[in-house]
Design a protein around this nucleic acid. Structure first.
Ligand SMILES: NC(=O)c1ccc[n+]([C@@H]2O[C@H](COP(=O)([O-])OP(=O)(O)OC[C@H]3O[C@@H](n4cnc5c(N)ncnc54)[C@H](O)[C@@H]3O)[C@@H](O)[C@H]2O)c1
Ligand SMILES: NC(=O)c1ccc[n+]([C@@H]2O[C@H](COP(=O)([O-])OP(=O)(O)OC[C@H]3O[C@@H](n4cnc5c(N)ncnc54)[C@H](O)[C@@H]3O)[C@@H](O)[C@H]2O)c1
Lengths: 214, 214
DNA sequence: GTAACGCTGTGAATTTTTTCACAGTAAGAC
DNA sequence: GTCTTACTGTGAAAAAATTCACAGCGTTAC
């Protein structure tokens, strides 16, 4: 895949959503779908769908729309799920455990292969099929497993250290739930998922709506 | 507050982040901050900070930058936290419980006032200070409490029903963790937080980085 | 005093993202 | 066959978001 054009975060997000939706459609047995219908299912416009698929070089037919299995295959490959990706989770607390449960059977190409915690009570066992280790061996295990991604669910104060260790061990992508700006080398991709921020956004617009209603 | 010209989601997100950061700075006792410094702490550019603050009509001084307490107050008010906002959570499962814990002492103006579940085993008790009710009384309780926002952490199959009930009871903002596109009246603001999508995005860019590294 | 500095506020330029709108096309009706 | 229809692919336009770049100003140095 001679990936040339730089594809934006936004487009990747939508492609991921198309992919999830297409999987369901495919299981349902539908062979074809129009941009318009896929758009509605994903909450975007038809033109957006066509533009996005154009960006990854996929073509449909004017009469039948897009071939579902073929498109699913293409999007999946484009997103890099042709081969297995390994990830680890650090911080087996409230949120960490919810995520351990969540990843069971999610995306077969996105494998959560280990979890770590500083608390000895929470490690040396298997939770939802994932082996849990003490943080002391984190660098070693991550490097050995060649994990590419790390999910950070430790308290704010520990997040930077965890991130640095992960990066040193070869991780190039981080999903960070701690409300802190991580400092990492520029080749590492960081996505911060700050639930407080998201909620405050909802609060703001919920307020706007309530105001308008009156 | 005469007319808030339409402020975009993106700006609100950043304002929320500024707010959190400013709170810490304020507690630390710093009286002033430059756009440049706030920008660095929040991972954006200085011009962006200045533009955003201009959008909410806040001014600093050329010599001392922005007055921290005053700015914090302004942003907080702008986001609508002058008065208390009530929210409810539906689905006291793995994720729901993590969130119940998370909201303890977060934002004093954003109060999680009730939680609901269909499973009788999980209700009629108090978890992390939040009273848990059976879904059967949800509409009633939500209306009575005048909750404005709902957090949906039920399985995909139940999400639409839950959303509809909440909206009927007066909720105007939803934070939806179920991977499904909710259909709601146009005056209701919905934010979908699909963790699979976020992770797939991280996977994509982690792959890009790893490729480049070679 | 006044000069030098480094900041903010902001028009304007630039870049990015989204939408429009329509030519081209394939299928089905008859 | 030809007509009708409804789709895709895509330049071009529009809109939105971001960055540039600099005038103007308060503070400090001397
Ligand atoms: N609970 C939520 O729903 C939620 C939501 C959004 C964000 N967050 C954020 O996610 C993070 C974790 O939240 P939580 O509620 O799961 O907290 P938690 O206290 O329940 O869990 C944190 C876990 O991290 C472990 N830990 C601490 N230091 C560590 C280190 N250096 N290395 C490895 N493990 C370490 C602790 O032992 C604990 O098990 C926090 O930053 C929080 O702000 C939580
Ligand atoms: N666990 C995670 O980390 C995670 C992460 C992202 C998204 N999600 C999504 O969040 C949702 C919940 O995930 P979970 O892991 O907490 O699942 P879970 O099965 O642990 O919890 C779901 C809860 O919802 C309750 N419920 C079911 N139907 C209901 C109804 N009609 N009304 C009220 N309550 C009802 C169940 O009794 C259960 O307690 C799912 O849609 C999941 O895809 C979960």
């Amino acid at each position: 895949m001679p990936d040339k054009t730089k594809i934006s975060k936004r487009i990747i997000e939508r492609l991921s959503e198309y992919r999830t939706t297409l999987e369901e459609i495919d299981i349902h047995g539908n062979r074809n779908i129009y941009s318009h219908d896929l758009a509605k299912l994903c909450g975007v416009t038809a033109a957006q769908v066509r533009r996005d698929l154009m960006n990854i070089g996929f073509s449909g037919s004017s009469a039948r729309g897009y071939d579902v299995p073929e498109l699913l295959q293409n999007v999946t490959n484009f997103l890099g799920f042709g081969e297995e990706r390994r990830m680890v989770l650090v911080g087996i607390g409230h949120l960490g455990r919810a995520l351990l449960d969540f990843f069971v059977d999610r995306n077969p190409k996105l494998v959560l292969c280990a979890a770590f915690d500083v608390n000895e009570m929470r490690v040396n066992r298997v939770i939802h099929g994932v082996r849990c280790y003490p943080v002391s061996v984190m660098g070693e295990v991550v490097a050995e497993m060649q994990a590419q991604m790390g999910i950070i669910t430790v308290p704010e104060s520990a997040a930077q250290d965890v991130a640095s260790t992960l990066v040193e061990s070869g991780v190039t992508g981080l999903l960070n739930f701690a409300p802190v700006q991580l400092r990492v080398p520029s080749h590492v991709f960081v996505e911060n998922l700050n639930i407080s921020t998201v909620l405050e956004k909802v609060a703001y617009f919920a307020g706007q709506s309530a105001e308008k209603e009156r």
